[in-house]
Structure formats: C-alpha cells, structure tokens
Simulated assay, not measured.
Amino acid sequence: MKIAVTSASGQLGAAIVKQLIKEIGSNYVVGIARTPENAKHLGIEIRKGDYNNREQFDEALKGIDTVLLVSGMDAPEKRIQQHRNVIEAAKANGVKKIVYTSIVGDETKTAFHSVVKSNRQTEADVRESGLQWVIGRNGIYMEPDLEYLDTYIEEDEIRNCAGEGKCAYTSREELAFAYTQMLLKDNHNGQIYNLAGEAITQAELASLINQVYNTDLKYHSVSVDAYEEERKAALGEFIGGVISGIYEGIKLGINDVSSDFEKATGRAHLPPLKMIEKFKNG
C-alpha cells in the first residue's frame, strides 16, 4: 500500500510524513510538494504537485492507494478548485481513499468565515467523490503562540480580542498522530472528527506559558474592531482579517468544541501544559 501526503514540505504535511514513516516505513510513503527540493529532507520519494495543476497530480498520484489532502493556503475563492484538482486526479488514478485536513469553525459569524466555507465545500466534494473518505477538523494550533513568545515577552502581555472565550488547542504533532491512524485504519472511513484538545481561555494560556517558560505574561483583552485594525495594519488586509477572525471566533465560543481525538486515535489528546512543555523541549 502506498500513501501520498500533499504539501509535504509544509509543517503539518511534514509532521504527518514523519509519523507515517514511524508506523509503516519510508518505502510506503510518497510526499507531494509544489517545490520538491523543499521536501527532500524527509527521506522519501517526493513527487511534484502544485494544487493549481491537475496534470501534475495525475502524475503524482499514479500507483497511490490513499491520499492525505492537506488544505491549501491560498485565498478561499481559489482553494475549492485547487482541492478539486487533487480529488479528480485521485479518482482518475484509482486511489481508493482520501483523508482531508479541514478546520473547526463557523461559516457566517467572523472574518474567518470565507476560509471555513471553502473548507466545508471541499468536505462536500470529498464526501461525494465516490472514494472511501475521512475528514478531520483541526483545532487551532498551539505552536504559533509559542513561536510568537519573544514578542509577547517584549510587550509583556498576550493581547487579542478572544476575551473569556475558550479555545480547544491542538498541535501539529498531535494532528500527525491522528491523521496517521485515520489513513491506516478503515474503521474511521466515513467519519468527520473534531481534532482538538482541552478548551482553555487566553488567561489560562498565559498562565501555562508562564509556568513552563518562567515568564510573567498577562492577558489583555481588546475589542474585536481594535484588534482587527491592528492585525490588518501589521499583516495586510487578508491575513490580518483571518487572524482577527480566528480570535473573534474564540470569543464567540466557536472553538470550544467537543473533541473526537480519542475516537480517532485510541488515546486522550495531550493537555495544553504537556503540549507547551513538548514544544519547549523540542
């Protein structure tokens, strides 16, 4: 059996590849990347595949039994067709099963809604593909907060518009473990899983970071409008809107979801404290 992982040069794709190698060995895993050189370090066969190019995926998916479709990073209006290029190529090449990395979220309530909507459309396309399928809806990654820690320390606070809202964080490593089980085990076929951990507030996040890093961060809540303005000024209209939309979603309770992680993996999700410790210790 050969399993292909798209976006293998990205952080989530690479984490899934590494976990698959641990479980089934490198001979059975194929990475697909827009720029193959960026994934060579994974030590597996790498094939070229740009989501915009259906013909490349017709080549990339030859001889593949199962494909893991990592959600693209392009603008929402472009993603749907990009993902369809992979789904159609999978069907044409006799791929038997497709696993899709979607996201937790709401389709109407925040500036993040267009991204969520595009993911939901791909979920529908996957379900209607005629292939065996499994869909994971990823919670928000813990890593970006920890990668941003120097800025938090400099500013002496974690500042956003999430208020008292709770967020069920996950990590790329935890997701890699879950997706590997979903790829390898047929009892997950036809399921949609929320892949997230225990829900915590931003104040609790600050407290856990303080515990692990010996910092003294406070949480500072600002209005949705003020945070959106700040993020758009710093990151541009699209990314700034997405980031502020994510935190608005937390404020509204959109990311306080019940987790299906144990159903997908057979074990409990790591608690937030353990994820932070693991990140710190590399």
Results as ranks from 00 to 15, higher is better:
Y152C: 09
P144I: 04
S129T: 06
L131C: 00
L146P: 00
I135G: 04
I158W: 00
M142I: 07
M142V: 05
L149G: 01
V126L: 09
I135P: 07
T122I: 10
L131M: 10
I135F: 01
G139C: 05
Y152S: 09
E143I: 11
I153A: 08
T122Q: 06
D145C: 03
D145G: 04
E147L: 14
G139S: 04
E154D: 12
T122L: 01
E123A: 01
T122H: 07
A162S: 15
I135E: 02
D145L: 13
T151H: 13
D150F: 03
L131P: 13
A124D: 10
C161Y: 05
Q132D: 13
T151A: 11
N160F: 00
N160H: 07
Q132L: 07
E157F: 07
D145R: 10
S129M: 09
R159L: 08
L149S: 09
D125I: 05
T151K: 13
D150I: 07
E155T: 14
E123M: 12
E157V: 12
L146I: 04
E128C: 11
P144R: 10
T122M: 05
I135K: 05
G136S: 03
I153M: 14
Y148C: 11
Y148H: 14
E155F: 10
I153H: 05
I158T: 03
D125Y: 05
D145V: 08
E154S: 13
E123F: 03
I158S: 01
G139P: 07
I135L: 07
P144D: 04
I135W: 00
V134A: 05
G130M: 06
G136I: 06
G130Y: 06
V134R: 01
E157W: 08
E155D: 15
E154K: 15
I140H: 09
N160E: 02
I158V: 08
S129G: 07
A124T: 13
E157M: 15
G139M: 02
S129K: 13
I153P: 13
D156A: 15
Y141S: 11
S129L: 11
L131T: 04
I153D: 02
N160C: 08
A162G: 09
M142R: 10
T151I: 14
G136P: 07
A124Q: 11
L149F: 02
Y141E: 01
I158K: 10
R127A: 03
Y141F: 13
G139I: 05
R137I: 07
V134H: 10
E147H: 14
L131D: 07
R137P: 07
E143Q: 12
M142F: 04
D125L: 14
G130K: 09
D145I: 03
A162W: 01
I135H: 02
I158N: 03
R159F: 01
I158M: 00
C161D: 02
